[in-house]
Simulated scan of single mutants.
Amino acid sequence: MSRRVFVSAGAAGIGRVIAERFLSEGAQVAICDADPAAVANFQADYPQAVSAVADVTAENEMAGFLDALETQWGGVDVVCANAGTGGPAGAIETLDYEDWQNCIAANVHGAFLTCRWAARVMKAQRSGLITLTSSTAGLMGYPMRSPYAAAKWAIVGLTKTLAMELGPFGIRVNAICPGAVEGPRMDRVVAKEAVARDMSEDEVRALYVTGVSMKTWVNADDVANSILFLASDAGRKISGQILAIDGHTETLAPS
């Protein structure tokens, strides 16, 4: 039987690349995403996949989609809790509380709803892999991005805890910590930081490279490669790990 793989926020960006890579290996793939246009594009390109519009922070939407997926598949082998948002940029005293809440909700509450379902289903079958998307911002401080850093550190704690809870049932849980990933999402992040730091976007991009040992950004395929490795037989004993895919970030506050 082919592997059954669910990717949240899977219609665009990193999530789409993860979904595409599993599809190319013959897996059954399901995605959800809050962006109707992105889901429509994904459906058009991959009609063999299960796809739906669902907001990871909306309990009813996620429960409806995931319960239907469980009925259709009878279980799940790989769950990628990938959804998140960059949140606002700025010194903490300038931030709006609603923006803070939205950032925490998309990154942390969405992961909770996804992992709660995955844990129940995988416990019943006594097998499975869960990956959560954290960030290098979940490994160190990140000036001007406190909501995002707080959320991604929470994902690290959730990963470590779930690996302990679920390990006895044959379930592995790991976090992926991408660095700066090329693409539209980071373009938006750079634009926000440029305003917050009173710098040009090119200057902000240069700062990201300055703080990385390999002096380079990463791409979505780099992230997907790591998840496919974890899902392979070669990764079958890897659990509770926080894996940075970033060219070694030395600091998120380069001088």
Rank of each mutant, 00 (worst) to 15 (best):
Q125K: 14
M186Q: 10
W100L: 07
D55L: 04
T249N: 13
G13P: 01
R116K: 15
D221M: 03
E93D: 13
D222I: 06
A37C: 11
A231H: 01
P143I: 09
E250T: 14
P88H: 07
N41Q: 14
Y142W: 13
R120L: 14
S226M: 13
Q48T: 12
A231Y: 01
R126F: 09
S24H: 12
A44G: 15
N102L: 11
A19C: 09
W153F: 15
V17W: 04
N219D: 13
P88G: 12
T133V: 12
R188S: 15
L228N: 03
G138E: 07
A231K: 04
Y46M: 08
Q241L: 00
G179V: 06
A196T: 10
G183F: 04
V156I: 15
V50I: 15
K237C: 08
M140Q: 15
D77N: 08
A151P: 02
I92W: 10
T133F: 03
A68E: 14
I130E: 00
E203Q: 15
I245F: 00
A11C: 13
A234F: 03
S135P: 02
T210F: 09
D187R: 14
V39E: 04
G90P: 06
L228Y: 07
Q72L: 10
A191T: 14
L132F: 10
C115Y: 03
A244P: 01
Q72G: 12
T94I: 03
E250C: 14
A191K: 15
R3F: 07
S239N: 04
V53M: 10
I176K: 01
A52V: 15
A234G: 09
Q125A: 11
Y208D: 11
G74R: 06
A12Q: 15
M214I: 08
A89F: 04
D55G: 08
V121H: 06
C115N: 12
S134H: 05
R172K: 10
V76S: 05
G235F: 03
A54H: 04
A150H: 05
L158I: 13
S51D: 05
A19K: 02
W217H: 10
S226R: 01
E182V: 12
Q241S: 13
T94A: 15
E70G: 14
Q28E: 12
R197I: 13
A163G: 02
N102M: 13
S226I: 01
E98D: 12
F112N: 03
A27P: 06
T85Y: 01
R126Q: 15
M144V: 11
W73T: 08
F229M: 04
L243Q: 04
A91P: 06
C177V: 08
K123G: 12
F42M: 10
K237E: 13
A52Y: 08
I130H: 03
Y97R: 11
R205Q: 09
G64Y: 11
A11Q: 07
N107W: 06
V181M: 02
